[in-house]
Simulated scan of single mutants.
Amino acid sequence: MRRTALAPLALAAVLFGTQPASAATAGGWEPAPSAPWDVGAGARCGFPVHGEPVVDEVVRRVLSTHADGSARRVAYKGDLVVRVTNTESGASYDADASGSAVVEYGRDGSQTWAVRGPVLVGVGPGQGSLPRGLYLVDGVFTMHISPTGYKEVRLLHGTTDDLCDRVDPAATR
């Protein structure tokens, strides 16, 4: 099901490659690979879900650092397609999460994202204003992740697509 959202929304987890890379590329961009992930039943969907990149060309560029040398502002871009699989039924969906973002990392563990989607977002129970789920958020939006993990998204223009529905054979669309 596709829903248009034009009001502030909260999200729980962003599943977008943010791991440090080992080698720099031209122009200061370096690979930022996404690792496969698993979440148990009830964490995002009503069933266990596995995510695995099938295309991962995400790169990052550190724009500024904190006084201790850790990344403060980082830009991310590149193709990312994640195969989302319901591990109970085997149903899967290839989610194109090839958005771009600039992420500001706070010293307190917070993050502020400026995004041009699509980006894959996981929401845990009680972790935001969107219901628990796994979403492909597409559009132009900002997201603040608090130090406790609460996500607030302001979708300026765009849509959310519930991937739990896409990989649940019992879901009606």
Score class of each variant (00 low, 15 high):
residue 111 Q to N: 10
residue 58 V to E: 07
residue 58 V to L: 14
residue 121 V to H: 09
residue 26 A to Q: 13
residue 72 R to I: 06
residue 146 S to T: 15
residue 165 D to F: 04
residue 66 H to T: 08
residue 129 S to D: 06
residue 136 L to Y: 03
residue 139 G to V: 07
residue 77 K to D: 10
residue 116 R to C: 06
residue 78 G to L: 03
residue 170 A to T: 15
residue 134 L to H: 03
residue 108 D to Q: 10
residue 83 R to C: 01
residue 91 A to F: 12
residue 156 L to V: 12
residue 9 L to S: 03
residue 64 S to R: 05
residue 56 D to N: 12
residue 59 V to K: 10
residue 97 A to Q: 00
residue 50 H to R: 15
residue 160 T to N: 02
residue 155 L to S: 01
residue 39 V to I: 10
residue 151 K to C: 12
residue 111 Q to L: 14
residue 1 M to R: 11
residue 16 F to S: 12
residue 39 V to F: 08
residue 145 I to K: 11
residue 85 T to M: 00
residue 76 Y to T: 06
residue 96 D to K: 01
residue 63 L to M: 10
residue 145 I to P: 01
residue 130 L to E: 05
residue 42 G to S: 01
residue 15 L to K: 09
residue 131 P to G: 15
residue 16 F to E: 08
residue 126 G to N: 10
residue 43 A to D: 14
residue 170 A to G: 13
residue 153 V to M: 15
residue 22 S to E: 10
residue 120 L to A: 04
residue 119 V to S: 01
residue 99 G to K: 01
residue 66 H to I: 07
residue 75 A to C: 08
residue 86 N to D: 05
residue 125 P to L: 09
residue 152 E to S: 13
residue 147 P to S: 04
residue 13 A to G: 13
residue 165 D to H: 07
residue 35 A to W: 11
residue 162 D to W: 00
residue 72 R to K: 15
residue 63 L to E: 00
residue 29 W to V: 11
residue 101 A to H: 05
residue 119 V to I: 15
residue 144 H to C: 04
residue 75 A to L: 04
residue 33 P to I: 04
residue 80 L to D: 02
residue 68 D to I: 12
residue 54 V to P: 03
residue 25 T to S: 14
residue 37 W to M: 10
residue 80 L to M: 10
residue 58 V to W: 08
